[in-house]
Structure formats: structure tokens, C-alpha cells
Design a protein around this nucleic acid. Structure first.
Lengths: 295, 295
DNA sequence: GTTGCACGGTAAGATATCCTGATCATTTTA
DNA sequence: TAAAATGATCAGGATATCTTACCGTGCAAC
């Protein structure tokens, strides 16, 4: 059977040559000189051939030792490379996180979060993609991404969720709409207005306001199209506040006070599978930025 | 500082995955199961991150473990490759020998020696080159070759020589030459004949026969040319028996009995530098074939 | 030469490391 | 529910490893 070469012993041999002697190598490796002698002897016994010339005072390689030297050097270098990479991984100086979020979070919250993250962890590669909440949950579930930030649906066995923040749902309409000036409103006040459904409309399901959806004949999933519709005064819609693009001059957001509807946004990850070091760092980072927002 | 990953521990991790469990890995590695657990724990502590998922019964890798796996596998494979190559080297299943000999040895002795050597050590690469005896010694001295087989000149400090065989010196002449029929002859009997000097003629230096060289006006170094001269009856020459090509039909070799001159052929190698495993094997092989020839 | 110094090798005891055997908690299987 | 299998844990003893002290050699300076 082939011998098991110990990295420490190989390091000894390299140090002897680098430092030019057993004593110097011992000093360099913070060992005693006999330890070096013994390491070399053991290594030579394992190999079955002497590596250093004996007898004369100085440390000189045998031809076999010369043959071994570059190979040992390469092997030790390989180890150090692997070790260093692993360390970089655990110290969050390298690695990769894949995150999925709903579009509103991706566009409103993630920019600031990622901006500060890349400052703290310059070596970590980040991939962010968005999709509707079910898709996000699915991507986490399949392992396509490690983290998901989405509206918390019904809890699942295989997914662990951490609440991050509450996002109140309101009505969005043009600034000349009768509802525009109100501070808060009851869902019944919406009766009679043309309601445009969108991807977030199912957040109303299960609430008294769900009844509104039945009288809506328009469904627009694309946010750009939706805002264009609203700006054209074609109707009104409901949106979580985060999903409302505040920079639209002609659109207003009026919170829905009765019933008070919120979507709970949380952080998803798989149960039973731990996070990669990079993802764990991202998780901590996200929670440090948003974790205080929820009661 | 980066952690020192022990190969045994990496092997443990790989075995756990290969064999599908700690117990199976323990059996496969001829260890107890706790040893595997502890090796994994120690490895995880060094890395600062868990490699295996805890809690659930089965052995499953963390994402970090999955990241490490191919790297560790490659590192272990690298070690095994180096170790195996070194073993092949020491077991004389691989390697290389460079030898230099005088032409007579190269053409008369080496074919048989090398033929049996390559049978015993099929993996070893051989390089054989010839040159006159001083050149051979020089090549050994400079390390250009590890072994030399040549006529032993004055012993040198840096060269260790092992006598292999005695090669008697005689006169070579055409079969119709007056000396041709003799069994043995005295150097004085050569007086009056035209003597052609050659590369081996300096073997006479220091002997009574040296006087002959002074009356020789022809020097031919090339053996082919020399035999052509002899066959043409242009003169006679002195040669060691080994250097005499016996297959020449018209040429005779007559031993020089008085003085009895021999060239001592031996095996040269550098002192202070040990031989490569392959060269050591060749040295043993040569001495087993020729070592008995000398008293 | 003789002395001093640096080199590497050796021996014995201390220390750290590793492995084992027994045992436990948990999960899976029959 | 009983039985088997998984991995974790702990105390102990075997093994390996390191250190301290000492030895022999070779080289340089005196």
C-alpha cells in the first residue's frame, strides 16, 4: 500500500531547503530541531528512500529527494490553496448567495441592503431575482436560491420563515379621484369604482374586502402597465405600500383602514439544510436591516 | 492563519459520503465509528463551519460541505498520485538511469546487461552513451550521468569506483601476419612492426611496452577505420580484448604476456551523492552480472 | 594543533493526539 | 411496541509527537 505522506513532514522538508538547514527550519516552524530530524526520518522511512544525504554536515538532497521536491512543493501548495479558499469561504470573504424576492422588495428594499452588504463583504457574489411570492417560495424549496424574501403565505414544513416587516395594503388611484384626498378608508367606500386586479390582489382573499375582487373585470400583472392604466384614470387598484411607486406624481396611496390589511413579509429558507456561509451572512445582514421593523 | 487540513480527516469525509454513513465509513477505513465522528468534528472545528447536517439521522452535507467536497477529493487524489509515483520510484518500477561507458563495454557487455535489466525493471527509462574513459569519468563527475563503466584511471576523491573485471591487452593483426599464430608474446617481439596507436594505447603508458608508442607514427581513434587499416595489413595495434571485434574474420588477437597488461574496468559513481533508486538498481544489476569476474 | 561553534543525530521523559469500547439519544424499521 | 441502526459522547489507554539534554562530527579561528 502506498504511504500516507503527512503534510507537516512535507512542510519540514521544504522548510529545511528554504531555510538552508535543520536548525533554521526548526526556528522557522517553531519546533525543536530534533522534531525536524524525526519528521525527516519518518518521512524517509515511509518513502523507503533517503531524501537527504547523510554524513556530511550540510543538508543536501539525494537525487530521489530532488525528484520529490517539486512534487511535494506542489502538493503542499495545493493544500494551502484549498485551505485558504475554505477559510475565505467561512470568513465571508468569498462565496455566493442566490436570493429571490418579490418585485416590490427587490426594487424598494434590496438596493440599500445590497449596497451595504457589498461594502461589508466585497468578495461575495450575489444573484438577485424576483418573482411573485409563490414562485419565490418554490425557488427556495427547490434549492434554486438559498434565501427568499416574500409575503408569508401559509407556513410549510420544509420552509422556515422569519417575519421581517409588515406592509399595509391600500388603494392606489389618480390624484383627481374622489378617494384621493382621504386619509384612510373603509372597503365599502370602494364600491362602484372600477377596480383593477393585479398580482397582489389575492392578498385580499380571506378578508371582507375579498368581495371587491368579484366585481373587478380587469387584471393587469405588469406593474408598468398597471400604473399606466391608473394614470389614465381607467380605474383604481389595491397594492401593498411597498409596491406603490411613490415617485409617480399623479398617483396617490390611501391606506385601507377597515379592514386593516397587511402583508407580512419575511425571510424564507429551507429547513434541514443549513445555509452556506455567504447566505448566512446575507441572512444576518438582512435581519439587521429589517428585523426591527416587525413587532 | 489557515487551518492545517489532515489528509486522514479528509479521507474520513470522503469515505462517509462514498459509503453512505459513519458506520460504513468506519468499517471501510478499519476504524471505530467514534473515530470517524471525532475526525469530522475536528475537521469542522478547523474549518469553522459544519460539513454535515446535524440532527436528522442520516449523513448529509451542508452547502459548505458540498462546496468543500470536490476540492477535498481533488486534494486527496493529488496526494495519492504523488505517493504512488514515489512508491513506483522506490520500487524501481519507474525512474530513469543515465549511464556512460567506454565504447567496448557499450557494444560488448551492455547489450546483455540491459536486455535482462529491462525485463526485471520494465518501467525504468535508460539512457546509454559512450565515450572514451576520461569523458566517462567527467560525465559522472559533473552529474551528467549517474553511473559510468570505464577503465579505472587514477582514483579520484569525488569518484567511487568498484572493480568489475579485468580486460587483458593484446596485439591485433591480420591473420597472415607473422605474429598471428602465437599464443602469447613479449613486447619486444613487436619491434620492427608498424604499430598503429588508438584511443586505448595510453593503457600502455607506465609499462615497459610504452616504448613502443614512440616508434608509432599512426594514430586512429575511430574503431571502424582502425579495423579497416588492420585488415588492409597496414600495421598492427594493441587493444583490450573487449575492444577487439571477434567477428572480424581476418583479424587475430594475441595476448601480450610480457608484460601482462590489463585494463581494470570498473563502475564509477559520485561520492557524497547517493544514487537514484533506478540507478541503484542498475548498479546492483551490473554488479550481479559482472561483479564476479574480478578477483 | 586545539578550541569553539554550528551542524545534525540520538535517548528518555513529558505532552498531545488519536483510537477504542461502552453507553446514550434519536430515528427508522419490522 | 420492540428491535435495529444512526450518530454523539465520554473515559481510558495506546500511539505518536514534541522537548530537553547530550553526543559525535566537521569546520574555522586562534
Amino acid at each position: 500500500m502506498q504511504p500516507e505522506l503527512k503534510l507537516q513532514q512535507l512542510r519540514c522538508m521544504l522548510a529545511i531547503l528554504d531555510q538552508g538547514g535543520f536548525h533554521a527550519a526548526a526556528r522557522h516552524l517553531h519546533r525543536s530541531q530534533p522534531a525536524i530530524s524525526m519528521a525527516v526520518r519518518d518521512l524517509e522511512e515511509r518513502l523507503g528512500q533517503p531524501l537527504f544525504e547523510k554524513g556530511n554536515g550540510k543538508a543536501a538532497l539525494t537525487p530521489f529527494g530532488q525528484w520529490c521536491l517539486p512534487r511535494f512543493h506542489e502538493l503542499v501548495a495545493h493544500h494551502d490553496r484549498v485551505s485558504r479558499d475554505a477559510l475565505a469561504m467561512t470568513c465571508h470573504q468569498a462565496g455566493r448567495v442566490d436570493i429571490a424576492t418579490v418585485p416590490s422588495v427587490a426594487s424598494r428594499l434590496m438596493p440599500a441592503i445590497l449596497a451595504s452588504f457589498v461594502v461589508d463583504y466585497p468578495g461575495i457574489e450575489i444573484s438577485l431575482q424576483d418573482g411573485h411570492s409563490e414562485l419565490v417560495a418554490q425557488m427556495v424549496l427547490t434549492g434554486e436560491v438559498e434565501l427568499g424574501i416574500t409575503s408569508l403565505w401559509q407556513p410549510q414544513e420544509a420552509l422556515s420563515s422569519t417575519p421581517l416587516l409588515h406592509d399595509e395594503i391600500g388603494v392606489v388611484c389618480r390624484d383627481d379621484h374622489p378617494l384621493a384626498g382621504l386619509d384612510r378608508l373603509h372597503w365599502r367606500e370602494l364600491a362602484g369604482y372600477s377596480l383593477i386586479r393585479n398580482g397582489t390582489s389575492r392578498l385580499l382573499v380571506g378578508s371582507p374586502a375579498a368581495e371587491l375582487l368579484e366585481h373587478s373585470s380587469l387584471f393587469i400583472s405588469n406593474m408598468i402597465s398597471l400604473t399606466a392604466m391608473l394614470e389614465a384614470g381607467i380605474g383604481i387598484t389595491t397594492l401593498p405600500r411597498l409596491a406603490f411607486q411613490e415617485e409617480h406624481e399623479r398617483l396617490c396611496f390611501v391606506p385601507l383602514a377597515e379592514p386593516l390589511l397587511v402583508r407580512r413579509i419575511g425571510l424564507l429558507c429551507r429547513t434541514g439544510v443549513s445555509l452556506s456561509p455567504a447566505a448566512a451572512a446575507m441572512r444576518r445582514h438582512v435581519m439587521a436591516h429589517l428585523g426591527g421593523s416587525v413587532a
